[in-house]
Computed example of a mutant assay.
Amino acid sequence: MPFIEAFRQFQFKAKRENFCNIHVSLVPQPSTTGEQKTKPTQNSVRELRGLGLSPDLIVCRCTTPMEKSVKEKISMFCHVEPEQVICVYDVCSLYRVPLLLEAEGVVGYFKERLNLQFEANSRRLLNKWKEMADRYDRTLEICSIALVGKYTKLSDSYASVIKALEHSALAINQKLEVKYIDSADLEPCRQLDEPVKYHEAWQNLCSANGVLVPGGFGFRGTEGKILAIAWARRQKKPFLGVCLGMQLAVVEFARNALNWPDANSTEFNPNTKYPVVIDMPEHNPGEMGGTMRLGKRRTILKEKNSVLST
């Protein structure tokens, strides 16, 4: 594997005092016996050494805390000290993982191994992190957000948006519940083809505390997003449009508040009578996405009394 060979060569260029190799390995625990198996870790470390890399830390992923005898066994057969075997077991939230690593001695190991000088306020920062993790575990009130998009079947498609929402919910002492809604399921044609999906989508939308329409490309599902945006505006529900979501909010307002039924983005209808979102040729390579603002662009406002001009 080329990237392993690159790491092997890099360790000599970086020198040992600047290079730390962390090997992550699964320690399975079959439900039939409940015994934590070390063979996969032993074999993977052996293979890694055969490729010219020796682990400084072996991070073992487990479902439950690792028994002392298991840690000692991995230490013995993988030729590392027991302190270099780190157990990362399943915890109640992602925010607990840094605290778990600190409790396992990872911070102290890095400080000694890489000769790191920590700032005096590092403990204070860790305490703040612990307070946040404790607050997350204690939070009971739910904040539900309807995420109306086209790629809702792919869990990682909106990962950055979901993480931002989680942090926002945590800041107001609430837990996030995301209602994933395929925007095409909100469109009238879906009511005829698959009425169950149509009614479920609208039920999820109507029961949410807020609506978020993320970015995307292509015409499919845009009318469903516009319907969701119109519903949020009329019901005075909190709404956030990101990238395409904000563009479609402009389209929705032009259609329903300004009575421009033909309003659209030129990305979807180049011949629209009211091009409220325009294509930017200097940014458009001929593919989807030519309406994205990727840099400075001079804008000329024809009306001096508009809200935007002031």
Rank of each mutant, 00 (worst) to 15 (best):
P2D: 14
P2W: 12
P2E: 14
F3K: 15
I4H: 10
F7Q: 14
Q9K: 13
Q11Y: 02
F12D: 14
K13L: 13
A14H: 11
K15E: 14
I22E: 05
V24P: 04
L26G: 02
T32C: 09
T33Y: 08
P40M: 14
Q42H: 13
Q42K: 13
R46C: 01
R46D: 02
E47Y: 11
L48H: 07
R49P: 03
G50R: 11
G50H: 12
L53Y: 06
P55D: 06
D56T: 05
I58G: 06
P65R: 12
M66S: 13
K68Y: 01
K73T: 08
I74R: 10
F77C: 04
F77W: 03
F77Y: 12
C78S: 07
V88F: 10
D90V: 12
C92Q: 14
C92R: 11
L94T: 14
R96D: 15
V97A: 06
G105L: 10
V106I: 03
K111L: 10
E112R: 15
N115L: 05
N115I: 06
F118L: 15
A120E: 14
L126N: 10
N127E: 13
K130N: 13
M132Q: 15
M132C: 08
D137P: 05
T139W: 03
I142D: 00
I142K: 03
S144W: 03
K150C: 07
Y151N: 15
L154A: 10
D156P: 04
D156M: 10
S157C: 06
S157N: 09
A159D: 11
A164Y: 01
S168R: 11
A169I: 00
L170D: 09
Q174Y: 09
L176C: 04
K179R: 15
Y180E: 11
I181F: 02
I181P: 00
S183V: 12
S183W: 12
L186N: 02
R190L: 05
L192E: 04
E194R: 14
E194M: 07
E194P: 01
V196M: 04
K197F: 06
E200V: 00
E200D: 08
A201D: 00
C206V: 05
L212V: 12
V213M: 04
P214D: 01
P214G: 09
G215N: 02
G218Y: 05
G218M: 00
R220E: 05
K225N: 02
I226E: 07
W231V: 00
W231K: 07
A232I: 04
R233L: 12
L240P: 09
G241R: 13
V242C: 05
C243S: 11
G245I: 05
G245D: 03
A249G: 03
V250G: 09
R255A: 06
R255P: 03
A257G: 00
L258W: 01
W260E: 10
W260Q: 10
P261T: 02
N264L: 01
T266M: 05
T266G: 00
F268M: 10
N269A: 06
N269W: 01
V277K: 00
E282L: 05
T291N: 14
L301I: 12
K304I: 10
S306F: 00
S306E: 11
L308K: 01
S309F: 08
T310C: 04
T310S: 09
